[in-house]
Design a protein around this nucleic acid. Structure first.
Length: 425
RNA sequence: CGGGCUGUAGUAUACCGGUAGUACGCGUCCAUGGGGUGGAUGUAGACCGGGUUCGAUUCCCGGCAGCCCGACCA
């Protein structure tokens, strides 16, 4: 997992502030809450900056995805944002008629370039320099990078922007059989990722339009009223089919019973594709097999947008009081609140903060001189999983109060109780 | 890209053809201290350009920006 240089923080030092009211130019719940809580800042339509709390959350999501990608043998790298026009011309994806959402610009020295919308082309070219024998395959390479897409209409807060973080994994295999194995492995990893991100129960593998090399691609669709897609879910089988391929013919092909399907709105959280030789052929990525024959590499691509995932988590789990983060994604595990002006209380809270941080806990300590009501309200808004309350009652009873954000469930813990009583770490 | 709408203190919102009011925020002071606590006081504003008019924040035109519906969405 990722190691953070600052695992804990005093809230009095946090420069971001919360707001009572949602900005008037946001309609999407995810953007309203994330802006109110100071996690993000809207720079322009569809373009958001990630502030300290937002970045911590985003990094947690990235960490989960990275963990799963590494777990199936993915090798992380990072490609350039600036793209080579000549390369994209070879696969016929430079032309504005073919791909209409490029941000294009030019070099002072002459010639055009564009900001990367996806990265099949550059990675395939790199592979031509490193793959030449069947012994060099398969390869799984992935990256986290900002993609730039000149969307005509940005919407839905951070779920559909013009600049957004994307995890894109590409697989390079010897043949269809090997590709199928890898594809299945990535698919399983994706299922685990959404489960770890806390949206597994609402996320369905969904058949969608495929492309040239397979009849269908598979999307990971999270059921949400904020979704832009319509899917038909088979609850029993736990799979769904996108409206774009919903037809009697396709349903029978997929072995789905029309009667059992339920229509739902959903948002696409991930998508996996069989690319076949769509890019390896035109870019000359081939290898020599055991018999000395030259063969094209079979490719696949697999995307998840961590920023979009963050938006989906908010849409799915937040309540009317504010954000609610699952354990694995929260910017901090604990939100320690010190209530009132009492010196003894402050001392107690300081000591607990010291104890927790020494034990390596990720804790945000609200040490500010603010009213209890304000601290509670802001704590709800920030959505940190467990709130530890230290107040005058603690002095009287000798107990800390721990409140779970998602359920409101409260437990009391003796002051000198062992650290493990605060929950898993 | 087609259609619709909106730009007023830092934020959220009123009113008005005669240069703007409220709440929150922020500063100061007093009280308060387990659900955005109460009071006093201060601070700060009409997107840009042009037109109509005695006078425009208000009406008209253009620009820019933002939002919504649709289309689009490796």
């Amino acid at each position: 997992m990722v190691v953070y240089s600052v695992p804990h923080m005093r809230q009095s030092q946090l420069f971001t502030k919360t707001r009572r009211e949602a900005p008037s130019d946001e309609v999407a719940k995810n953007a309203q809450l994330l802006v109110r809580a100071g996690y993000i800042h809207k720079e322009m339509a569809g373009v958001y900056s990630y502030l300290p709390l937002g970045l911590r959350t985003l990094n947690k999501i990235v960490g989960v995805i990275r963990d799963e990608m590494d777990g199936i043998g993915g090798q992380e790298l990072v490609l350039t944002a600036l793209q080579d026009k000549e390369l994209w011309s070879r696969t016929d994806r430079w032309d504005d008629v073919k791909v209409d959402n490029w941000f294009k610009t030019s070099f002072k020295s002459g010639g055009e370039t564009g900001l990367g919308i996806t990265h099949e082309e550059p990675l395939t070219r790199i592979m031509t320099e490193h793959v030449s024998s069947y012994r060099d395959l398969p390869v799984l390479a992935y990256q986290f990078q900002n993609k730039f897409r000149n969307e005509l209409r940005a919407k839905s807060g951070i779920m559909r922007g013009k600049e957004f973080l994307m995890k894109d994994l590409y697989s390079f295999s010897r043949d269809d059989r090997e590709h199928a194995e890898i594809y299945a492995k990535v698919r399983d990893a994706y299922v685990r990722i959404f489960k770890r991100l806390g949206i597994g129960d609402q996320t369905y593998v969904t058949f969608a339009s495929g492309g040239i090399f397979s009849p269908f691609s598979e999307e990971f669709q999270t059921v949400s009223d904020a979704g832009e897609d319509t899917i038909y879910v088979d609850e029993e089988k736990g799979i769904a089919v996108n409206k774009e391929v919903y037809s009697d013919e396709n349903l029978s092909k997929l072995g789905l019973d029309k009667e059992k399907l339920v229509e739902k709105k959903a948002i696409e959280a991930g998508n996996i594709f069989n690319l076949g030789t769509r890019f390896s052929e035109p870019l000359g990525l081939s290898y020599t097999d055991e018999s000395g024959a030259k063969k094209p590499v079979i490719m696949g691509s697999y995307g998840i947008g961590p920023t979009r995932a963050m938006g989906i988590i908010v849409e799915t789990l937040a309540d009317d009081k504010g954000l609610v983060w699952p354990e694995a994604v929260a910017p901090f595990k604990f939100h320690l609140l010190s209530l009132g002006h009492d010196n003894e209380v402050s001392k107690l809270a300081d000591d607990l903060y010291e104890t927790l941080t020494t034990a390596g806990a990720e804790v945000l300590y609200d040490d500010r001189d603010a009213s209890p009501g304000q601290k509670f309200a802001e704590s709800d808004l920030l959505g940190i999983p467990r709130r530890i309350i230290v107040g005058k009652e603690t002095l009287a009873s000798g107990q800390y109060e721990i409140v779970e954000r998602s359920t409101g469930k409260t437990v009391k813990v003796a002051k000198d109780h062992p650290f493990v009583s605060f929950g898993s770490e």
